[in-house]
Design a protein around this nucleic acid. Structure first.
Lengths: 367, 367
DNA sequence: CTGAAAGCGCTAACAT
DNA sequence: ATGTTAGCGCTTTCAG
């Protein structure tokens, strides 16, 4: 630990070479190609480096020269810190990190403030490729990423972007399976809680127009799955109340469930587009002393650990796997030219929060 | 989205300038100092850029020139992916990410395989500084970070390293407070579960030698706190069984608790150096149908959400705050020269897992 | 096995 | 308001 730490960089490869009376190549080789010079000479170089406090080749200069940054960038919709609070995102990150560390690549979390159009952070990122996690289709940061001349893989983005790999699950089919489960239980009066659908804050009912204009593909697809499932039993989608929340948190879910039930007390089932929202709905039911599933069925989506512990009926998706595949797609891309699309399977998990609506309920088979 | 994405970089700032018949400076200014050139000229430059598929100044080249990478590196003990599984680490990361995004800096997760001596990843990292999270004092990656001529802040590292900032909590004092709580409840026969103490796998009792050679400062300090607390009531530390686990997981805690109680059935309290281990111990107690806290007291450390839900008696530390301070220390370092040390407070949380040992227990006040 | 030459792509004084 | 001049620190053919 020579006192070199924290000193304004004094030594450079060139100065070291000069000091030793050898060429820069030789010093470079001492670090990068040990087999290209004699052991004693190499030892001399390294010793001199230590003595002069030379910390080894500058990574940025090397990157410029080699055109390799040794890192992949991750772009997230939300504020960076959110990624560590959302269990689904955390699982994805774990898988992605796994792939990166296996390939010896760093993972750069790109700092984006949502609802902010400053995309310099994307331009600033010294990375060899990007992973884009579940962002709005018209997100300016996303667009900025697409401008960068590096490979990119998007996650949960059904939209087909030229030359970009994609990994995701079939959200629509997953939600369809869940909805069938509910209709098989004879639910007809269903209410929906969903996450942010598009830019602009909307905490409350999501009008058909708002739904049609949804730019978060995941939410759009999940709603479509519910719609399909209900259509199959003759329930018209325009009759189904959909409540949207800007924040994605248990609190928001609780609040939304309260609003939904207040406006539509006849509902027998609340379908949530995420487990987090469903957990909030469960909490609201507990507060209101509504028996789940006897008086009210509640379902989620994702299959996060908390939901599993709560016995939530939900659709499980392999989040960790999704992250790993995203990383592999980016890092192991041979010289293939055709972009790849990977769709991972989902699984309906029937927990203890769904059951037949009570027959004595006056609205049964009403619609 | 001109077809430029994914095409081998064709255009450069220089080529654009040539094409337009202006100087490189002008093009550079068009991007970096819009006020330094006329609006029409700037528009022309940007238009030409779009037409030629020029993605804007290369971030790596810019970094080399400006000596700023726009990112901070994070070094973790464990495999990168572990950080997303450990709730204490997750909280820390959230705080750190918060500080980074506020400063518009990226956060680069440096890929290190533990038990691997390849530190090239540290050399490769294009960052303006490092945050080191709870690593072994002799970790080669850590040492490599210290060689890099960039500011560094270490977390939970009591060891004083020249010129390096530090943030952490007083683990020893926190554990002392907890232990006093236990001795006040008249516990004397205590067993301890701890995390990895040093390099090399050891799943089982940690001998006094092993304890003395501990290189994970956090674990060392927490054990010291217990020792101090017990010494105050005359309990000799060498009589206290300490079990170590390499893996940090609920399963490991459960397993360790089983081993500890099998070897020392007289124990009235299990003190764990982390909540995760304590959660495992609780699970073991449940399996064995040992009543907690009546037949057995179990305590943790950290104050993670899961522990709170379980009503665990523990020591809460402000993990998010710790991450935020780490980031701020690194990013807001004015031109101060003296390194700063910040010690955050801990708080004893008395839950429902600690109580007086049953008086009828035959070992009471035995030692 | 070692050295000389040629940039990687960009920004920042300092002129003009 | 725009151009000229110098590198940032390194790697990499290609000769010796």
């Amino acid at each position: 630990m020579a006192g070199a730490s924290n000193v304004r960089r004094p030594a450079t490869l060139a100065s070291l070479a000069a000091e030793l009376g050898v060429s820069r190549t030789t010093v470079s080789n001492a670090y990068n190609r040990p087999d290209q010079l004699s052991a004693p000479l190499r030892a001399r170089v390294l010793e001199a480096a230590r003595r002069l406090g030379y910390p080894g080749p500058d990574p940025v200069a090397r990157s410029l020269r080699t055109r390799k940054a040794g890192a992949v960038g991750l772009l997230l919709t939300e504020a960076l810190s959110y990624a560590f609070r959302d269990p689904a995102a955390t699982g994805f990150l774990e898988g992605l990190a796994l792939a990166c560390e296996q390939a010896g690549q760093g993972l750069l979390l790109v700092p984006v403030s949502p609802e902010q159009v400053d995309v310099t952070a994307v331009h600033q990122a010294g990375v060899d490729g990007f992973v884009v996690y579940s962002v709005r289709e018209d997100d300016p940061h996303f667009l900025a990423v697409l401008e960068r001349p590096v490979p990119t893989v998007v996650c949960d983005q059904p939209m087909s972007v030229e030359g970009v790999d994609r990994v995701g699950v079939d959200d629509r089919a997953g939600m369809l399976a869940l909805t069938r489960h509910l209709t098989a239980l004879s639910h007809r009066r269903v209410g929906v809680l969903c996450m942010r659908l598009a830019a602009g804050r909307n905490d409350g009912p999501a009008s058909p127009e708002r739904q049609a204009a949804a730019t978060y593909p995941v939410q759009r697809e999940r709603l479509a799955g519910i719609r399909d499932g209900l259509a199959a039993v003759g329930v018209d989608w325009v009759e189904v109340p959909v409540h949207e929340r800007f924040e994605h948190s248990v609190d928001a879910g609780q609040d939304a469930a309260a609003a939904l039930l207040a406006a539509h007390p006849e509902i027998t089932a609340i379908v949530c587009t995420s487990d987090i929202l469903a957990l909030g709905a469960l909490r609201h039911a507990a507060v209101r002393e509504l028996a789940v599933p006897d008086q009210l069925t509640i379902t989620g989506f994702d299959g996060v650990p908390e939901a599993e512990r709560a016995g939530l009926t939900t659709v499980r998706q392999p989040v960790l796997e999704k992250g790993r595949v995203a990383g592999e797609l980016l890092l192991e891309r041979g010289d293939r030219n055709r972009p790849r699309r990977v769709t991972l399977p989902t699984e309906l998990v029937v927990g203890v929060t769904s059951a037949k609506p009570r027959v004595d309920q006056r609205f049964f088979s009403g619609w």
